[in-house]
Design a binder for these strands. Structure first.
Lengths: 124, 124
DNA sequence: ACCTGGTTCCATGCGATGCAAGATACCTGG
DNA sequence: CCAGGTATCTTGCATCGCATGGAACCAGGT
């Protein structure tokens, strides 16, 4: 994404990420601990959820503040040490909760976008 | 939803609505003009996107400010006059743009929630 | 005429979130 | 010693959902 990209498409995508990014990051930690730049790359490869460091690190700080993740420093073979983030029980519960809520939300949006809204009345 | 409902489920759902509500409201106006309370009821019936007047009216003000909708006053058979909101060409373009972006976003989130993230490497 | 209730509209202030920009530190290689 | 890549974090801003409160209009009962 270009720095000065203020198209309507970019704006819609930016607003979409709100609130979802947190749980996608938790989902990435589900099977093993991850570190910041690793999460950043995984989000970038997904395409639709690409973001920046200025978004991920404050998010990770909030997750740690709310006891959804714990962190451990670990040496790296090449480069500075990495802070690995792992799910706590609360974090896993939050992820499960979101996984339960998401399908209903997704289907509701799909319905609004695809269902016609005729003048005569919805369905009553 | 109770007024003082601050459960994790409610919190996740609240954050999810961010950015999506705007386009669901536009989608409701796709086939005919709507007025405020009518939009509020339609959102409430969907379940997952139920919200309040304090959310809808500022949203409608922003849509009008950005020239995505136009408004016309119309008398009501029972009650005060209603302000009907209709899509402009820009509004319809924004809705089409969102309709194009949404499936990719939705599938990306689905992938994060359902795809395992094994230790050995993603897929490379 | 009064007043109670329902309907419809809107404004204000707060908390949460994504983001651009910048700062700091570590390691490797020339 | 210095340049570049890797990795972490902070600050200030803009946007958005929401609770709360207020204002206006109409119908019906007393």
């Amino acid at each position: 994404m270009e720095p000065g990209d203020s198209t309507k498409q970019a704006r819609a995508a930016a607003q979409l990420r709100k609130g979802v990014l947190e749980y996608c990051v938790l989902a990435l930690m589900r099977d093993r601990p991850r570190y910041g730049v690793e999460l950043l790359h995984a989000l970038e490869e997904s395409g639709a959820l690409a973001t920046s460091q200025g978004t991920v690190y404050p998010l990770l700080s909030r997750l740690r503040r709310d006891d959804l993740v714990t962190t451990t420093w670990q040496e790296s073979a090449s480069g500075p040490p990495r802070r690995y983030y792992a799910l706590t029980d609360s974090g896993r519960a939050a992820l499960d909760e979101f996984t339960r809520v998401w399908p209903g939300f997704r289907n509701a949006v799909d319905a609004f976008l695809t269902t016609p809204h005729p003048p005569t009345g919805d369905l009553a």
